[in-house]
């Protein structure tokens, strides 16, 4: 992996663009070294590996949904949900996309920031996530076609699982959102109070 890492170090170029180029490919999950092997990701996934990435995933979900005046995704243990979902529920394609995405991100951080993602400064973490987010472009038509063929990209999966895991966690549902287990009555029309929170469940 050492030579690969060096090969990706690009000088005299806008660094953000360079990282963007690498991570963007990761985004559709085919350009990484591992990705070529799993072209279109249909091969069997070697499951059971994500436990080793728990600290990385914790830091990722903490950037996507940070602690503010309410606790964030890491405090809500969303990393555990992300791993449980990916290990047990994901398709082979998406498992491979996700795993490749994690390893590519670490490689890029090592080459660009000389450290793994967990040890990056907050500014570096935000920069890396911003690039992943921009390049995941989950709304354009090409991405939708890509998603059908190859499964969703690493960051699209991570972001949607973080939102789902957090908003359906006890912390997310009861602190960021409003959760009433037994409403008793249905008031069909109410006037929204200032700053009223959205209901956690439908």
């Amino acid at each position: 992996m050492g030579t690969l890492k060096k090969g990706r170090l690009i000088k005299n170029m806008d660094r953000r663009k360079a990282i963007g180029g690498i991570l963007a490919f990761t985004g559709v999950g085919v350009a990484s070294f591992a990705g070529f092997k799993f072209f279109y990701g249909n091969s069997k996934a070697k499951r059971g590996q994500l436990k080793n990435y728990e600290s990385l995933i914790s830091e990722l979900v903490a950037v996507i949904i940070p602690a503010t005046d309410t606790p964030g995704a890491k405090e809500a243990k969303v990393q555990v949900y992300v791993i449980d979902y990916m290990e047990s529920c994901s398709s082979n394609k998406e498992y491979n996309n996700f795993l490749n995405g994690l390893t590519d991100l670490q490689e890029t951080c090592l080459s660009e920031y000389d450290t793994n993602f967990e040890a990056c400064t907050m500014a570096q973490k935000i920069e890396a996530i911003e690039i992943l987010d921009i390049n995941s472009g989950d709304n354009d038509l090409l991405t939708k076609i890509d998603n059908k063929i190859r499964g969703r990209s690493f960051f699209v999966i991570l972001k949607s699982l973080t939102i789902e895991g957090y908003c359906s966690s006890e912390i997310g549902a009861t602190e960021l959102l409003a959760y009433v287990p037994v409403p008793v009555n249905y008031k069909a029309i109410t006037t929204l109070a200032p700053n009223q929170k959205a209901w956690a469940t439908r």
Binding site: I64, I65, C167, L176, A198, A200, R202
Partner: peptide
């Protein structure tokens, strides 16, 4: 009929800005 919530509301970005979008009905 219902109001969009985190399951259906289109959201952008990440961080505190994302959290703020999730917090209110769509």
């Amino acid at each position: 009929g219902e109001r969009e919530n985190w399951e259906s509301k289109p959201v952008k970005g990440f961080g505190a800005a994302l959290k703020a979008q999730l917090e209110t009905p769509g």
